[in-house]
């Protein structure tokens, strides 16, 4: 798995490429924690290249939501495919985080 970080106007985009599982989740956690430390709290998670996510992968986001919120940040997911979305829905995570169709839809949320 690879995590690419891009600074855009008003938000930081994390593009996940590959499979986010128990083995690779620490890499994603490190990326989010570093962004929090740097004050990059408006976060967009681009899932267009995400092929698979397990509970360990979702756990990374679940465990960081409170810290993001406490810094007035946002956690938004875009380009989530049907298989990945079904995992969010099984756990009820789709009710906790914001999921939009594509990056353009997210931009207004970071204003």
């Amino acid at each position: 798995m690879q995590v690419k970080k891009n600074q855009n106007e008003g938000y930081t985009k994390f593009s996940i490429i590959g499979e986010l599982d128990a083995s690779s989740s620490i890499q994603m956690d490190d990326a989010l924690k570093q962004a929090l430390e740097d004050g990059d709290v408006q976060m967009l998670i681009d899932c267009s290249g995400l092929e698979y996510i397990s509970s360990a992968g979702l756990g990374v986001f679940v465990s960081n939501i409170e810290d993001i919120k406490s810094k007035n940040g946002s956690l938004v997911f875009c380009d989530v495919n049907e298989e990945i979305l079904s995992v969010f829905q099984v756990l009820g995570l789709d009710k906790i985080v914001t999921i939009v169709k594509e990056e353009n839809d997210a931009k207004a949320l970071f204003v």
Binding site: S54, G59, V62, L91
Partner: peptide
């Protein structure tokens, strides 16, 4: 899930 978020927990979802 709300409890996991509140407690900043990474685990606890696999069995569900």
């Amino acid at each position: 899930i709300e409890e996991l978020v509140k407690n900043k927990e990474k685990g606890g979802m696999g069995l569900k």
